[in-house]
Computed example of a mutant assay.
Amino acid sequence: MKSLLLLPMLMLGILFTSCKKEEIIQQEVVQPNRTIIFEVQSSAWKLNNNTHTWMAELPIDELDDDVNQNSGILVYISGNKQLWEPIPDVYNGSTYIYTYTTGSIFLEVQGADGATIPAPNSTTFVKVVLVDSAPIP
């Protein structure tokens, strides 16, 4: 009698242990940030008499409408491409800020005390980092 019960139990054991669970893992695609380096020559700075600031426009094709509306734009300046300072910042006694719109970044510089200063007289290196992002609906 025991042997008659043993055979069906063995069959059930084999049937239930032969199932294999598979887990499907989807890999997320991450869009990398983009970095663009500009050299702003001293001749690129134009004085805005209304605000008493020097302005330089950096045309940037990568800054399309989608990037303008959804991504982060970070800007850094340097005098030697070795030491980078994030903007807004006071750098060498001058205050630097930036604004942007589709297709352009605008750098502005004035004296740290708000006074009009001479235009930067050497090449200023500018690093622009576009941090891709997607809006949350």
Results as ranks from 00 to 15, higher is better:
Asp65Met: 09
Ala134Ile: 12
Glu62Tyr: 06
Ile73Pro: 05
Tyr100Phe: 13
Asn33Arg: 06
Lys46Asn: 09
Val131Phe: 01
Asn68Ser: 08
Ile97Ala: 12
Tyr98Lys: 04
Leu4Glu: 13
Gly111Thr: 05
Val30His: 07
Asn33Trp: 00
Ile25Pro: 00
Asn70Gln: 11
Thr124Ser: 11
Arg34Ile: 09
Pro8Val: 02
Gly72Pro: 01
Leu58Gln: 04
Val40Arg: 08
Cys19Pro: 00
Val29Phe: 15
Tyr100Asp: 03
Asp132Trp: 07
Leu10Trp: 05
Tyr91Met: 01
Ile36Leu: 12
Val90Glu: 10
Pro88Arg: 03
Val75Lys: 04
Asp61Cys: 03
Leu4Ser: 11
Asn49Glu: 15
Tyr96Asp: 02
Asp66Ile: 12
Pro137Gly: 08
Pro8His: 06
Thr53Leu: 09
Asn33Ile: 05
Pro88Phe: 02
Val128Cys: 10
Ile105Glu: 03
Tyr76Glu: 14
Ser122Ala: 12
Val30Asp: 03
Ile77Pro: 04
Gln27Trp: 05
Pro118Gly: 03
Gly72His: 04
Val40Asn: 08
Thr102Glu: 15
Ser18Gly: 09
Ser18Val: 02
Gln110Tyr: 03
Asn49Gln: 13
Gly93Asp: 11
Leu5Cys: 08
Leu12Pro: 09
Val29Ala: 12
Leu63Gly: 05
Gly103Glu: 08
Pro8Lys: 03
Ile105Lys: 03
Asp65Ala: 13
Glu23Cys: 09
Tyr76Met: 12
Leu10Pro: 01
Val30Lys: 06
Ala119Asn: 09
Trp54Pro: 00
Asn70Tyr: 15
Phe125Ala: 04
Val30Glu: 07
Ile117Pro: 02
Phe125Glu: 02
Lys21Trp: 12
Met55Tyr: 01
Thr95Tyr: 11
Pro120Asp: 10
Ile117Gln: 07
Phe16His: 11
Pro88Met: 04
Glu28Phe: 00
Gly79Glu: 13
Ile73Trp: 05
Glu28Pro: 00
Thr35Asn: 07
Asn70Val: 02
Ala119Pro: 10
Asn49Pro: 08
Lys46Asp: 07
Asn49Arg: 11
Lys46Met: 05
